[in-house]
Design a protein around this nucleic acid. Structure first.
Lengths: 244, 244
DNA sequence: CATAACCGCGAACGCTGTTTGCAGTTTACA
DNA sequence: TGTAAACTGCAAACAGCGTTCGCGGTTATG
């Protein structure tokens, strides 16, 4: 557990979405990619990602572990498919036209809800992401929401990356909040920490930390540097979705 | 790989730092905790975290895999020790007195440098952190730097958590930047993405993304406490074309 | 001195992802 | 139509992992 991340692209093979689901010669496969992914997601939702072993998945499908390699070239392929499948749950995406910051916040909130619905996503996301069609659609939706923002595309990509990153931070923080227990140390060596714990317990934490964090981040990344031509607000240029 | 994170505290045992390094009865141990941790870090620095298997580590120490369990109750203990050891490399910590934002940025930069020096830290950090003495010292340093900020302690803890989280985001982004390759899809289904790729390649990405991100984040998180002028502007919402 | 505790060691357990060879089935092509 | 290639399912096996267990030898305590 918790070792170096890998994904299917790391092994030099092309992603699973560009491989045919079945050959044209032999008998019809007993299962489909969708069936396998559905069963795997059910297992992960029920008992976490470690429960999705090739043997357990095969058992759930009523077959053997080795047979799964007729459909997947590796377990990473399976995780890629699972990820892209649940990313599809983020649909339908909001239309362009509203405030871009509210739009991005809505997308981020939906993403956080997805992490809550499928906590194993937090574990999967450790690996370099394998971008499937649904992930591309989500990217596209982000760019559409940010259409009114007139800055370099790289800045928008940065904003997307940081947004999803912050979402994962919150998701992980929520998932492990109960496990963060400070050990009983000799706190005299840490005066500020001791003072912090000595203070009267603060009121319940602000509930809008998620929104505030993302608002600060996005405005800072996309709108705070008017002197820099590569980022920040410029002239209003009417943009049409889909136009180059 | 990339499965559910665990740490030594998860198994209900007390952290390794509160367990005696050796008993008082038998022969002197052939190795020390520090030796083992040093060897493990050397292995991880050289070949990544997967290279730090109990067998490989034992071989590097000239012993057997099972013998390591005289010193560690699990591999998670080893990872905890490794983490806390390298966190010690963040010392010496800056004195209080300067601008707290600059101080936090300096701490964050040092943390990022640590991730670059020990890339396996990115993989280790997936697990809920086991807080050792060096981690506590780092926490204390953060609180000391933020002393002039007059807000609730919970807000400072939030700021620390988000800061280290953003650092890990950047570290992971740097470590896997070469692996992020978009697949050759039919981009016609993703008009905004296609438009983004059709645009002339943007100039090299801004170098100060790290600083800008953290400045936006920290000011946004800590400057919202009413009645505190030292925390900076309260309304950082800029004027962006397209936003209502 | 005896006893309990500790150390190093090697073999083994259960688990993982993955590979391989075999038998049976379906399709494509000559 | 016949044959060969390609494909499927399956069980066994491989290599690796973290971890446990029982063994003899060593050390400190009562």
């Amino acid at each position: 557990m918790s070792d170096a991340p890998t994904n299917s692209a790391g092994s030099g093979r092309q992603p699973i979405w560009s491989r045919p689901e079945r050959g044209a010669r032999g008998p019809a496969p007993a299962h489909s990619r969708d069936d396998i992914v559905t069963a795997a997601i059910a297992l992960a939702d029920a008992a976490g990602l470690p429960a999705v072993s090739m043997r357990a998945l095969a058992t759930a499908l009523g077959t053997g572990a080795g047979s799964l390699y007729r459909y997947l070239s590796s377990r990473d392929d399976l995780l890629d498919l699972m990820t892209d499948r649940v990313v599809g749950e983020l649909r339908p995406y909001p239309e362009a036209g509203g405030d871009w910051l509210d739009g991005m916040l809505e997308l981020a909130r939906r993403q956080l809800a997805l992490y809550r619905r499928h906590p194993w996503l937090i574990d999967v996301m450790h690996r370099p992401p394998a971008i499937g069609p649904e992930s591309l659609a989500w990217f596209d939706a982000c760019l559409r929401v940010m259409t009114p923002v007139d800055c370099a595309i790289t800045a928008k990509f940065e904003a997307i990356a940081m947004t999803t990153g912050v979402v994962t931070l919150f998701a992980r923080s929520e998932a492990t909040s109960a496990a963060v227990t400070f050990p009983r140390f000799d706190v005299t060596a840490y005066p500020h920490l001791a003072a912090a714990f000595a203070e009267p317990q603060a009121p319940p934490p602000r509930r809008d930390l998620f929104d505030r964090t993302l608002r600060s981040l996005l405005t800072g990344l996309l709108a705070t540097d008017p002197g820099d031509p590569t980022c920040g607000p410029r002239d209003i240029r009417p943009t049409v979705p889909g136009s180059t």
